[in-house]
Design a protein around this nucleic acid. Sequence first.
DNA 1: GACACGTTTCGGGTAGCACCGAAGTCAGCA
DNA 2: TGCTGACTTCGGTGCTACCCGAAACGTGTC
Lengths: 230, 230
Amino acid sequence: MFTTSDLAETASLVGEPARAAMLMALMDGRALTAGELARAAGVTPQTASGHLARMSAAGLLAVHCQGRHHYHRLASPAVARMLESIIEVSQGEPGRPRRAIVTGPRDAAMRAARTCYDHLAGQLGVRLADSLAARGHVELSPEGGAVTDAGIAFFRDFGLGLDAAPGSGKRVFCRPCVDWSERRLHVGGTIGAALAAHCFALGWIRRNERSRTITVTPAGERGFRDTFGA
Amino acid sequence: MFTTSDLAETASLVGEPARAAMLMALMDGRALTAGELARAAGVTPQTASGHLARMSAAGLLAVHCQGRHHYHRLASPAVARMLESIIEVSQGEPGRPRRAIVTGPRDAAMRAARTCYDHLAGQLGVRLADSLAARGHVELSPEGGAVTDAGIAFFRDFGLGLDAAPGSGKRVFCRPCVDWSERRLHVGGTIGAALAAHCFALGWIRRNERSRTITVTPAGERGFRDTFGA
DNA sequence: GACACGTTTCGGGTAGCACCGAAGTCAGCA
DNA sequence: TGCTGACTTCGGTGCTACCCGAAACGTGTC
């Protein structure tokens, strides 16, 4: 069972600016040290330590100690999904315009391409999703998403190891994820994670230091154009 | 764009016991008056009023004034999804047992059958989902869900008006929703909502006053057994 | 119009907690 | 073994906001 106080407890952990900033910093799926998270949240290490201990105890974060560094990461994809859904509500209705924000170059890089827990987001993520949908490889809707039979063959050719056999009748789902900068859907879930991991392995994209942004390499430019037409 | 403070602001609204209790009371999708919500949260009307105003301003609730009663409801399915995802995280890992709670008869009724925003949940919801999955009418996984072609025909025979044409190639998705009492998946999304609405229309189930629980009528017992084998 | 009822606004009391300074613990290194 | 750096624990301070009593507002009823 569960009680409403459990709901409030979890939500109140997220509902504090310093902790929210730490969680957002971890949304790229990497593990960061306590000091890095303290800087990301703009608080002193001792304050951050208390926050991290509480979030770990509540099952929001997982800790991995290595020497004198303590690496923290989101405990599970469910936590990432929770944060996404809160962000979606925070954005309000698309119709109602929110206050404009002066966007610096850093924000431009964020909009261009970034990771969203374990898959690709930003303009790159949306472009890929659009291309995959236009070619009939995936179907995406706010309600859900799935990889078509043609898509399974395509991803297999591309080099992704898919667990489900094409003839098994079992559908490969791709979770639709609302992009908070583009306000459009991109491909998440296991297929999104596998796709992102493969692009990293191919050297098409690489992570930038101290940021959730990613850079598309020249090889990636060619690859995305030739393989995805995007 | 959005900022981390938006995330914290929304989460902090949910992360307060009185407000969380009100939101949970609204999770059945109905609209309740300010006074009813005050009682549900265990606070005075004037305290509840302040909370409701803040949640409405933030876009979590929608208000509908009728005479001297103000009816509040969840502003959108996105809010319901957000609450579900927070609950999912609040429950922790299935492996780690949470503190046992003495469950009274009221809780037993909740576990048996209730509504979850707009669809059926509890043992009834899970039983229906299992039956539909076993017969190949839907496919459900934590990543997503879809109605099969056979399922579309089945639901059409049952009397549900489905928007997507069977031959259009467009998939009808059903959002998987983690049941917080059964810890299993049940059928949500538009198909789940349509299914629940049709069962209400057929008189198979009816709402109980002042509770999210629902009762299966004798006609419903027969109907669920004959039509769904559940 | 007087009254009852549901809801909202205002003001002050209070509890909780986020924050930081200082000190303690632990790992790595010379 | 002493030193440095990363992290945690402890104690005290200050602010936020939750809460309720009192009163005002609007609406439906007699």
